[in-house]
């Protein structure tokens, strides 16, 4: 399955929220590619815009948010057909054909992501009937089969159970069953394990990995947990304040991170062998969304900030075919005029 074919290509995506207090640039220039059958992990602190970005991929950003510019190019099959999701009417019939069928999504809160008013089965069958036009009976059979596949015990009984009678882990499994019900080519998982306890987390991640092997779909996994990243990812994209600051294969990110933010992130996670004082949190706080810093948005917190970082917005630098970084430290390598010499790289 993994033929390195590009499935989803995001170019300079901007999603802004127009509130009374001002404009929040939740996503402010995101570039991504997701290859079919592969897993891309989108990493970043809370509030960096990763959840908004992945909602944009489905065209379900809600008011006052809006896709302001950029392209979300979706290549559903091998014959080169291309759909720009960003340009579609978010309420139109075409994009609804994609949602739930080609690209499906699971969410952070398994407790509230299913409606307590309808049975689990009802909500999964709805998805199948909507996209396949199968009869309810066939859809029900398929649902029970799916529930079994995601490891729900006694699926023929639980299909008629209300979500609030299931545990969080069971609900997340049901959500996954729903997401897989139409054999999607891509699954977006928005922190699906954050709200679960640690053992359940591991089970859900294993389940997603297993199902990915079986169904051969691409997975976009949003998380702030670098441990999960190490386990799942083929590629990693690191986001900071609405921008992807570094993108590379997972090994490169962990072994040779280039962006100071990625480096800080990696230093801030505890390792078992570490001594206590080695833990190094990122200094400062995520800036107020209404007053983003000028220049490189990371400069107030960056240990390697230079004078130029205050004024110049860095653009993307390609370090090698698979490794992209958005940092002024590396721009001069491409011969960009530079006022001051880069301060020590490691």
């Amino acid at each position: 399955m993994a033929d390195n074919r590009v499935l989803l290509e995001v170019r300079d995506l901007k999603v802004h929220f127009f509130t009374d207090e001002g404009v929040v640039k939740a996503v402010d220039g995101v570039d991504l590619t997701i290859e079919s059958g592969k897993t891309l992990c989108l990493v970043g602190e809370s509030g960096c815009g990763k959840s908004v970005a992945c909602r944009a991929f489905l065209g379900i950003v809600q008011r006052p948010g809006r896709i302001v510019s950029g392209e979300i190019l979706f290549h559903p099959d091998g014959n080169g057909a291309t759909i720009d999701i960003a340009a579609m009417d978010p309420k139109g019939a075409e994009i609804r054909q994609i949602r739930g069928r080609e690209i499906s999504m699971i969410f952070q809160e398994p407790m509230t992501s299913l409606s307590p008013m309808y049975t689990v089965g009802n909500q999964i069958i709805e998805n199948i009937v909507l996209h396949t036009r199968d009869s309810k009976e066939i859809a029900r059979e398929r649902t029970i089969q799916l529930l079994d596949q995601v490891g729900i015990p006694r699926p023929d009984r639980l299909v008629d159970e209300y979500p609030f009678r299931l545990s969080g882990g069971m609900r997340q499994r049901a959500m996954i069953a729903m997401a897989l019900s139409c054999n999607p080519t891509m699954l977006i998982a928005d922190e699906p394990t954050t709200a679960l306890d640690v053992t359940t987390q591991a089970q859900i991640i294993d389940l997603i990995l297993d199902l990915q092997h079986e169904y051969g779909m691409a997975v976009l996994f949003i998380t702030h947990d670098l441990g999960v990243v190490a386990e799942l990812a083929d590629d990693v994209a690191v986001m900071y304040l609405g921008k992807v600051v570094e993108r590379a294969p997972v090994d490169t990110i962990f072994n040779d991170p280039k962006h100071p933010y990625t480096q800080s992130l990696l230093r801030s996670i505890p390792k078992i062998a570490m001594r206590r004082e080695e833990l190094d949190p990122i200094k400062g706080m995520v800036p107020n969304p209404f007053r983003r810093p000028d220049g490189c948005t990371f400069h107030p917190r960056c240990p390697k900030a230079m004078e130029v970082c205050r004024h110049v917005v860095p653009s993307v630098t390609q370090l090698d075919p698979n490794h992209l970084v958005r940092c002024l430290l590396y721009e001069s390598q491409e011969g960009r005029p530079d006022e001051s010499a880069p301060a020590g790289r490691n």
Binding site: G22, K25, N288, R291, D294, V313, P314
Partner: peptide, 17 residues
């Protein structure tokens, strides 16, 4: 890329915040 402060007066917001 130069979209640092287009909609909000940067100085004022800082004061406000």
């Amino acid at each position: 890329e130069h979209t640092a402060n287009d909609t909000l007066d940067f100085h004022e917001t800082t004061e406000e915040s």
